[in-house]
Structure formats: C-alpha cells, structure tokens
Write a protein that binds this DNA or RNA. Structure first.
Length: 839
RNA sequence: GGGCUCGUAGUUCAGUGGUUAGAACACUUCGUUGACAUCGAAGAGAUCGGUGGUUCAAUUCCACCCGAGCCCACCA
C-alpha cells in the first residue's frame, strides 16, 4: 500500500478511494482460494447462483453479506474455507430479456430460429452476465473466483444430462399428456410454484347449456364450457341426486356436448347452483375429476390462447373475445340466468404476468414420491437444520404433499433434454395427428446422441426440443459445481457443504430440490444448515419492487456510504429469526459514523505511537502530543508491555475478552446483528469513551494498540475494507494483510469480574460528578474542587487510588479532607462528598 | 380458506414471569475545534396494538379481536 504513512492518514475513511484497491490486493493474495488439507474439516458455502439477468438488489446484499461474514470468520479461524460462486442461466427469465431486446428490433425469436436465438442469448450473457459478479465484488464478497461456475457450462451440462439419464433409468421420469399451467406468452408450461396470484373482480355467469338442459351451472370462464364433458354435484345434494350417473347429450351454442352427471365430495352445494361444469382440459381440479371418472378430455383452447376447432363457431377467437361473444350469445338465446361480480385470484405467469391457461399437453415429469421420502427423513432427524426453526415444519408439510414435478419447458434457452427420437417415427406420429398419448416408444434417453437409430437403423435422430426447468439444473448446484459426476478432489474434500443461505421464497423451488437430488446422487445431504434470511421490505413494510418504485438499490447505497457501511447497516437492523426487516437508510449513516469513529481511534493510537513520525517531531503539525505527551512518551518507552498495569487495563482486558467470547458465540449461532450491536457498543462506549480517554492520562500504548488490533480482527468479517485499510497503517513494515490474521483467542484468565466491578464504581462516581456540575449549572469544562471526607472503606480507597482518572474525566480536583467542608453534599457508597457550587 | 411472522420511545429494533422496560439513529441543552466538520456530556421521549383470562405478580404465558407482512391452497 503506497500511502500508509501516519502523516498521510486522512481525517476520515473514504471508501471510494480505498475499496477497489483493497479488493485487488485480496485477489492478488490468492487467499480466497483454499488449499485442501485433509487434516482439517472444511467450511463450505455454495452461493445461491444469481440469475445472469440479475442486478444486485437488497435481498442479495443481505444474503451475500451474511455469507461473506461467515466465510471470512471461518477463514480467520483457520478453517479451510471455500465459497463457490456462480451464476444461473435462468431459462425463462433470460429468454424473456433477450426476447424483449429483439422486440425493439421488431423481431421475435421465431424470426431468428432456435440456433441463432441461442447464439444471441449467449452474446447477451457474455456482455451482461457477469454484471452481478462485479457487484458482488463491490460488496466485498470473498468468493473463490477461480471456481466460478455457470449452469450452462459444458461440465455442468454433463451433470444435468447424467442426472436426467439416471432418473429415467430408474423409472422416475415419465412423459405424458397432463394438464399443465401454460403461459400463452412464454409459450411454455410452467410449474405450480412459478405462478403468482392476483385478486381480481370478475363476473360469475349462471346459465344452462341449452333450454332443455335440466341443470344450470355457474362459471367465470364461459368460453371453456365448450369443452365440458361432465357436471359434478355434491353426492348429498338432494336437488341433483336423481341425475347422478346420467349422460345427457346437448348442443351448447352450436357445439355438441355429451355431459355425464357425476358426484364429487369437493363440490360445494352452496356455491353458485351447486353444480359444477367439468372442463377436464382447462382446469386443474376438473382434470383430476376427469381422471377419476374416466371422462373425455376436449381441448377447446390452443397453446396460443386461441379457441381450437373443437370450439365450433368460436374457433380462432382469442379467449377474451370468445368469452364476450359467448356471453352475448347466451343472452340472445335466453340461456343466461344471472351475472354477478365475483372476486377471485387470477393466475399469472410469474415471469411475464400473462394470465395462465391450464391446458393439456405433452410434458415430462419426475415422480416425486420416492425421491421425497429420504428428503423428509433427513430433515425430520435434524441431519439438516433449518434456521429459523419454523421452516422445518413448512418444508415437511410441502414435501409430504408433493405432486410430480413438471420439468419440461417449451423454451430454447436451457438444457435440452438428452432424449433422441427416431425421426421417421416422429414424422409418422405427427401425420397421424394422433391423440395426445404415447403408446409406442420411439425415443432413447442417452447422454450423447446415438450414432445409429435403434428403431429404424438409418435415420438421423432428432433431439427433444424441450429444455429442462431451470431448477432441474439448480437442484444439482452444490455438487455439480464441485465437479460431479466426476469424482474430483474438490468433490471428495468439500462435499457436503456446510451452510446454505438463501431467500425463503425459494425454499420449495430450490432448497427442497437440492436436498432430494443430493440424497439421490451423492447419497448424502447437500448442506448441514439452511439459513433462510429475512425479506428486505421498505421502511413502511412494503415489498421492494422496481415497478412500484419502492426498490432501494444497494449499489447506490455503496456509492453513498461505502460497502462497509452498507454491509454493517443492513446486518445491524437484522435479527436472525425475523421474517422481514424494514429497511431504513439511517442505520447506514450510523454505520458510516461508526466506521469513522473506528478510523479515528486508529488515527489517535497511531499518533500516540512512540515510533510514529509525529512523536519524533517530524509531524508537519509539530510535536504530535504536545509537551504533556512528551513526558509520557518517555514513560511509554520504558518498556511497558501489553500487560495490564492499572485497574483500567484490567477492566478493559476483561471486557474485551468477554466481547471476544460473546461475539464468537453469536457468530456461531448466526446472530450477526447482535454481534454487531455488541462490538459497536463496546468500541464506542467502553473502549473509546473510557479506555482511550483515560489512556490520554495513563498511557499504555502497546496495550491500547493491541486491543485495537484485536477489535479490527473482530470487525473484519463485518467491515472488511475499512479494517483492512486501517490495519495497513499498523503494519508498515510487514505489509501483512488483515485477511491472513487469526480470529482472536479468548484469554479466560484475563476475565476479571472484580476489576470490572471496581471500574464500574469509578465510572459511576465520575458520572455522578458530571451530573452534579450539570445540576448546578457549572460549565463542564470548569475544574471544580471536590472534597471527600476521609474514611475507612474499600470504596474510599478505590477512589483515592483512581484519583487521577476521576479528576481527568470529570474535570475536578479531588481533595481528601478530615473535616466536613461547607457545600453541597452528596452520598456515594457511604462516602461523603462535598462540592462548592457558587465559586 | 389454512399456516406463519410481527405490532415495545419520532424511527429501526433489543429484551424479560417480578425492583425505576434497553440500544442505535433522530431530537433538546450545554460543552468541545491538536483522534473524531462524522467529537463529548447530560437530557426529554414508551399507559410495551386492544380486550379478557391464568398468576401473589404479565410487556413477557393463554384466548379472542384489530392492524401490517409473508407463505401455501384456491370454489367452478
């Protein structure tokens, strides 16, 4: 570091000039890359890979600060510490971003074609995909960048293919027509958990299919009713009992329907007419009823969100259009009985906000039942611990009611299925326009494309066009990043990882899936502890969102306050188990002040240092400490060692060791906010306000320095940049980085309750004297005489012994007298104290 | 509809079955300009969301209610 002379030490810490340089030093040191040491147990975190479309938001800032604190702490403790970084290709999200870009050029992905489109996405990735990585570095994250991974890396893709083939061979993967959530905009199936619900007021229409039809039904979506194949009623409903089992043919606005009357317990007799028109192809619940009752399934809505040819006169219309027209027609024909307002939740695509159409389509699924079982066990048996604890129940409840996982997406950006079709047979099946059923298998599942088609022996096999759900690849993250399926040294040594820190919203999407994937492929848990951190909300408790304008950009905060203050401030307002934090910028300002305070304590100590240039009279400001300190400098040089000499020394060392102990405990329990509060209080209100102040009178510079350096170490995981910078001024010769420093050891023998108690008494006495001054409107800086009546008592002796400190800090002159003087009397621990107020 | 979290000073949060409920920031007053324009000291500020119950005693335990937020399910 070039300018670490004390005389160059600026008055305040300025993050902008410092942080980037420091980060480069760290990187150059190579210290973030651990060396495998089989004698030691490693500490390992896999970063939740941010999307390449992402930009650092408050959730990331909190999440990665937590991880970095733990990683730095463990590194200092001497653990072999690895933080694996990486990014996620994020199928739908990224594809949408690039599609939006294309749209500006008046193009769609179909104009480019699959190959060119993917190329385009890769270009986009090269250009913007590492943005978030740079932002993580700005935050100070000490990841091992030599191990950076991306979920579409060739080696990672291999892991994905291996996993797929494994599942398939075990019989866990099946393909079939099922009802899925279909996004007509993204043109793909999405899973249940990728849907967001939005309450909306719509109309509930009550009508009959035809005049002669005996039962009326109610629906919010009349257009789907063209695909009805049944009416479901509650088995106990007397009104409809007689119809159950009947099949009625009718014509509904030009479309012939065969309606079977079935009974189902889930039908609420009080809702609408108590009769539910069953549309197997376009409603999740109805699909299940159709399967249970062996009903015909008719698609009336196509993948574009348009009515199919099964919709008779409404063919080709958009869904909304068809709805309007049908309502008009129902009215015209006198079939519409009632229209009322009705509030329900509209399903929207999480990624693009388009209303979801439940549709029947051919999709790939993973059977979950067997996979879930061991994943339930390990959590039940606390092999994996959740923090906060409450998530254990939430996790288990979800896992115990797990549905099969739809893993196919009709996208282009992602891992293409390692499934190869016989082109000849594929062609044939298309021509047949067969029902959505596969009776005949004409594909092979294989990591590589077979050279020869096993079905016809001569065709060029074609790969399944679908890509895998992004989460299928993320599920392999903790072990695939370490080299799986290869048995690499990394994998052998660093797996399973130690700690996972992520947002609670991806508990199901990601955490659960990593657990069962790891148990399946690695035969072990992926991590020992899962920490689901608080959600960062605005101060008013509202969700942070760009579109609402309620977002706070951590990069702006870093720019304004520095990375350290941003980190410290966020953690300062965090409590470990809290579900949400209401983010306020004030804490960052406070943190900035705190860092500045820390900086200035350092500055003070440096200028007091006998070997510093200031003390040798070379300081431009003159003689560093003034005449008073010159004498003291001599004292300092008389080999005072870092040993407690005085009560003050004993007290501060005792307190310091308590703080080290407590801080260590709190970090081990992930109570990072509390740890910060503790250190903050100690540094400011014990070390600075008392110890450093007293040290101006009773010098023990080596000890002061030692304590200070210990505090820098304690703080380093929280505020790595500023502590590193200050540390450099204390290490002019050695040039050793603080990241190499060891975590402070607790010296139990220095914990000294007696000294703490005694010092507390001195503190109280000083405070009392200051109060008296204030009460009597005496200027605090005015030195007054305080008369203390001599007495045989331990407190008297204590006060007498600590006379200098008391005088110094209370700006008084103590006089120990035999006779009671005139003046205001106060009692302190049975000691009679007098002051004269009207000088 | 089900589950969960939270409601304590102006603000963000600690905290505890029992003497005057804490901190930080903000605020007020006084003082400081040779570590700290980002300093010091002192101080004001809370009927601990509401109601009822358990208890000798509740902010702390229980029930209900109100308010804020999250997750899951979803009735057509």
């Amino acid at each position: 570091m070039e300018s670490n002379n004390v005389k160059n030490l600026p008055k305040a810490y300025s993050p902008k000039e410092v942080e980037e340089k420091i980060y480069k030093l760290w990187q150059k040191s190579g210290f973030f890359t651990p060396k495998i040491d089989h004698k030691k147990k490693p500490f390992v975190i896999s970063i939740p890979p941010p999307n390449i479309t992402g930009s650092l938001h408050m959730g990331h800032a909190l999440n990665n600060t937590i991880q970095d604190i733990l990683v730095r702490y463990h590194r200092m403790k001497g653990d072999v510490t690895l933080w694996v970084p990486g990014t996620d290709h994020a199928g739908i999200a990224t594809q949408n971003v690039v599609e939006k870009e294309l749209k500006k050029e008046g193009l769609t992905r179909y104009d480019l074609g699959r190959e060119k489109f993917i190329k385009r996405v890769w270009q986009w990735k090269e250009k913007y995909g590492s943005r978030i990585i740079d932002q993580l570095k700005k935050l100070g994250c000490s990841c091992d960048w030599t191990r950076l991974r991306f979920t579409l890396d060739e080696s990672y893709s291999k892991a994905v293919r291996t996993a797929f083939v494994h599942y398939y061979n075990k019989g866990y993967i099946y393909k079939g027509p099922r009802i899925v959530n279909w996004c007509p905009r993204c043109h793909t199936a999405i899973s249940d958990i990728e849907i967001k619900y939005k309450p909306q007021i719509t109309k509930l229409y009550t009508f009959k299919y035809s005049k002669e039809f005996p039962i009326s039904i109610a629906t919010t979506r009349p257009e789907t009713k063209l695909g009805d194949t049944a009416i479901a009623v509650n088995p106990k409903d007397k009104r409809y009992k007689k119809y159950i089992g009947q099949e009625i043919k009718t014509n509904f606005l030009g479309v012939n329907l065969k309606i079977k009357i079935i009974s189902d317990r889930n039908v609420d007799p009080d809702f609408g007419t108590g009769a539910l028109g069953v549309t197997p192809a376009h409603s999740m619940v109805d699909f299940e009823m159709a399967q249970a009752n062996d009903l015909e399934i008719i698609n009336v809505i196509g993948p574009e969100g348009k009515m199919t040819d099964k919709a008779g006169p409404y063919k080709g219309m958009r869904v909304n259009q068809a709805r309007e027209k049908i309502v008009q027609d129902l009215k015209k024909q006198g079939l519409l009985e009632k229209v009322e307002d009705y509030e329900h939740s509209l399903s929207l695509c999480d990624r693009c906000g388009t209303p979801i159409e439940p549709l029947i389509s051919e999709q790939w699924f993973v059977k979950m039942k067997e996979l879930a079982q061991p994943a339930i066990e390990v959590v039940k048996k606390n092999k994996i611990k959740f923090i906060p604890k409450r998530y254990k129940k939430i996790y288990l409840n979800w896992m115990e009611n797990l549905k099969d996982w739809c893993i196919s997406r009709q996208l282009w950006w992602g891992h293409q299925f390692p499934v190869f079709y016989c082109s000849k047979k594929l062609e044939e099946s298309k021509n047949k326009k067969a029902k959505l059923k596969i009776n005949e298998k004409y594909f092979v599942v294989s990591e590589e494309k077979p050279k020869k088609c096993p079905f016809c022996g001569k065709c060029d096999m074609v790969q399944e066009t679908d890509v895998l759900d992004t989460w299928f690849s993320s599920a392999l993250w903790p072990f695939a990043t370490l080299g799986w399926p290869e048995q690499t040294d990394d994998l052998k040594y660093f797996y399973p990882t130690t700690f996972l820190c992520t947002a609670p919203e991806i508990l199901y999407l990601w955490v659960a899936r990593m657990i069962f994937s790891s148990l399946e492929f690695m035969k072990t848990i992926p991590f020992k502890t899962v920490y689901l951190h608080s959600t960062v909300l605005t101060k008013e408790g509202r969700r942070m969102s760009k579109s609402l304008g309620t977002g706070v950009d951590p990069l702006e905060l870093i720019d304004k306050y520095g990375a350290d203050a941003t980190r410290f401030g966020i953690i300062y307002q965090t409590t470990r188990d809290l579900q949400a934090i209401h983010f306020g910028e004030e804490a960052l300002l406070a943190s900035q002040k705190f860092i500045n305070k820390l900086w200035n304590i350092g500055r003070f100590i440096l200028t007091q240092d006998p070997i510093s240039p200031c003390q040798r009279g070379r300081c431009p400001k003159g003689r560093g400490g003034g005449s008073n300190t010159q004498n003291l400098t001599l004292q300092v040089i008389t080999r005072r060692v870092t040993k407690p000499n005085t009560l003050t020394d004993k007290w501060i060392l005792s307190r310091l060791n308590n703080v080290i102990k407590e801080t260590t405990n709190l970090i081990e329990k992930y109570e990072l906010g509390k740890a910060e509060h503790l250190i903050y209080e100690f540094i400011w209100h014990e070390f600075a306000d008392w110890y450093v102040e007293i040290s101006k009178k009773e010098k023990n510079i080596p000890l002061t320095k030692e304590i200070y350096l210990t505090l820098l170490k304690l703080l380093h995981p929280f505020i790595p940049f500023s502590t590193e910078k200050i540390y450099s001024y204390f290490n002019k010769q050695k040039q050793q980085l603080l990241i190499f420093a060891n975590w402070p050891l607790i010296k139990e023998n220095l914990i000294d309750k007696k000294s703490e108690k005694d010092f507390k008494i001195i503190q109280n006495f000083i405070i009392k004297l200051r109060n008296i001054k204030k009460e009597n409107k005496i200027n605090p800086s005015q030195i007054i005489s305080v008369y203390i009546l001599k007495k045989e008592s331990k407190y008297f002796n204590l006060i007498q012994k600590q006379r200098k400190i008391i005088e110094h800090l209370s700006k008084t002159k103590l006089k120990f007298v035999d006779k009671k003087p005139k003046g205001v009397k106060l009692n302190f621990k049975n000691i009679e104290v007098f002051i004269i107020t009207n000088n």
